[in-house]
Amino acid sequence: MIQRMVFSVGGDSVVGDLHLPDEGATGSVVVVAGPMTSVKEQVTGVYAAALAARGIAALAIDHRTYGQSGGAPQNYENWRWKVEDLAAALDALAVDVPGIDPNRLGAAAICLGCGYAATLAAGDARIRSLGLVAGYYRDPKAMRANDPEGFDARVAQGRQARLHYESTGEVLSIPAAALEGDAAMQTADTVDYYTQRAAVPNYRNAFAIMSREHFLPFDVQIAAPRIQVPVHMVHSEKALSPNWARAFYDALPGPKSLEWLISRGQTDFYDDADLISASADQLAQHFKATL
Rank of each mutant, 00 (worst) to 15 (best):
L51D: 09
R126T: 06
D268H: 05
L18G: 01
R138M: 14
P255A: 09
L86P: 05
L216I: 04
S69D: 01
D152I: 12
L20A: 01
P140E: 08
G34Q: 10
A108W: 10
I110S: 13
S13T: 10
F207V: 09
A156F: 03
K238E: 00
N243Q: 12
G113H: 00
L275T: 03
S236K: 06
A94E: 00
S8I: 09
G71S: 14
G16E: 02
Y116P: 00
Y193M: 03
A289R: 13
R162Y: 12
I227F: 11
A60T: 10
L275S: 05
P201I: 02
V200D: 14
R128F: 05
D192G: 00
L172K: 11
A107C: 15
A153F: 06
D101G: 07
P255K: 09
S173E: 11
A49C: 14
G106C: 15
A134L: 07
Y249I: 07
R4W: 12
I222K: 07
Q228M: 13
Y136K: 09
H235E: 02
A145F: 00
G158P: 06
R138C: 12
L120D: 09
F7T: 07
L261C: 03
D85S: 07
P140W: 12
A145S: 11
R197P: 00
I110P: 06
G67T: 03
V234Y: 09
D85T: 11
G27T: 09
V97D: 06
D272M: 08
A142M: 14
G45E: 03
A134C: 15
Y66G: 01
M1S: 06
Q68L: 08
D189M: 06
L120F: 13
Y66T: 01
P102K: 12
Q221Y: 13
G27F: 03
A224F: 09
T290Q: 00
D22C: 13
A25C: 14
D274F: 14
V95H: 03
T44A: 14
G11A: 13
S277G: 14
A33S: 02
A48V: 07
D189C: 01
A88N: 08
I262S: 15
V39T: 09
S13A: 13
W81V: 12
A117C: 14
K40H: 01
A153D: 07
K256P: 10
R104T: 12
G106P: 11
T168W: 15
P140K: 11
V31T: 06
Y137P: 02
I209V: 00
D268L: 09
